[in-house]
Design a protein around this nucleic acid. Structure first.
Length: 276
DNA sequence: AACGATCCCTGTTGGC
DNA sequence: TGCCAACAGGGATCGT
């Protein structure tokens, strides 16, 4: 599933073919993909003929600066993949959005489950857009321990649920949240307010290494429906996961069998020996 | 206010 | 073998 490392890997491969290029055309094949704009047609009207100056990222959102004060937002949802093709190459199933650049290439968003989206916003729309209430980026702007602790104090919400809250921290999804908690030695169902300063410090310290490891190996590809790099390759971090998807397998640290429980409606994997 | 539950969507999987 | 319910999950929204 695309989380911060997968989105950043995708962004890095899109930068060379998109930054500095002009959108010749934008085709929304599935109207639902433009649902974050009040008027879906605005996505086309606001992008066509304009140049993308920069493609950045906040959390799992790719955020582009477009000529004329337009902000482009790209989100992979859970099954979104970008492809870079020459004009006219045969299209795969579920090719839902196609950007054609002035370099004669097509940037295609293929997304079977359509949880992903594309949006184009004016400056006054941004505050109310999907990036309007995003927290700091988990890789580039990790807050100090004190400010993380402040948010957790007095809260009963499970720490994993908080790690998944994009207003608290932008970028962690179900897989990397479990991996962070495993590395930090903390159970995901612990009440946020019950964590000691040292435990908060351990969680904070685990976030960078886990995300950078994911990034280094091109992200995580759990199955063929899930995330792939724009060149079609699968992410190689999957085989290095500590806990996620490893129910019944041995903990890499102590050998205890990995447990699966449901937390906040999401599958959670953890080691009952290593995580307290 | 805080937090849990539900919905969106479709390919895959597991049970009968 | 074939069918169908259950499952997966990021984010928005609704209900308590």
């Amino acid at each position: 599933m695309p989380e911060l490392p997968e989105v950043e890997t995708t962004r890095r491969s899109l930068v060379p073919v998109m930054e500095g290029r002009r959108f010749e055309s934008v085709a929304i094949r599935r109207p639902r993909m433009a649902r974050r704009n009040v008027r879906p047609v605005d996505v086309v009207d606001r992008l066509e003929g304009r140049r993308l100056d920069r493609l950045g990222r906040i959390g799992k959102f790719m955020v582009g600066d477009v000529e004329g004060d337009i902000t482009l937002i790209l989100h992979l949802g859970m099954s979104g993949k970008f492809q870079i093709k020459d004009i006219g190459e045969p299209e795969d199933m579920h090719t839902n959005v196609v950007f054609t650049t002035d370099a004669g290439q097509e940037i295609r968003l293929v997304d079977p489950r359509t949880f992903g989206f594309v949006a184009a916003h004016t400056p006054e729309e941004l505050e109310f857009s999907s990036i309007g209430s995003l927290g700091p980026d988990a890789l580039e702007a990790l807050p100090p321990v004190a400010s993380m602790g402040k948010v957790m104090a007095g809260r009963k919400v499970a720490i994993k649920t908080l790690l998944l809250d994009q207003r608290f921290l932008a970028g962690l999804g179900n897989i990397y949240a479990d991996e962070v908690l495993s590395r930090a030695g903390i159970r995901g169902d612990r009440e946020s307010g019950s964590l000691t300063v040292d435990e908060v410090r351990a969680i904070r310290a685990a976030i960078g290494p886990v995300l950078r490891a994911g990034l280094k190996h091109g992200g995580t590809s759990l199955d063929d429906l899930a995330y792939l790099l724009p060149d079609g390759r699968a992410g190689q971090f999957t085989s290095r996961l500590r806990v996620y998807g490893r129910e019944g397998e041995h903990c890499r640290t102590c050998g205890t069998l990995i447990k699966r429980t449901v937390l906040g409606g999401r599958s959670s994997f953890w080691c009952e020996t290593c995580q307290v």
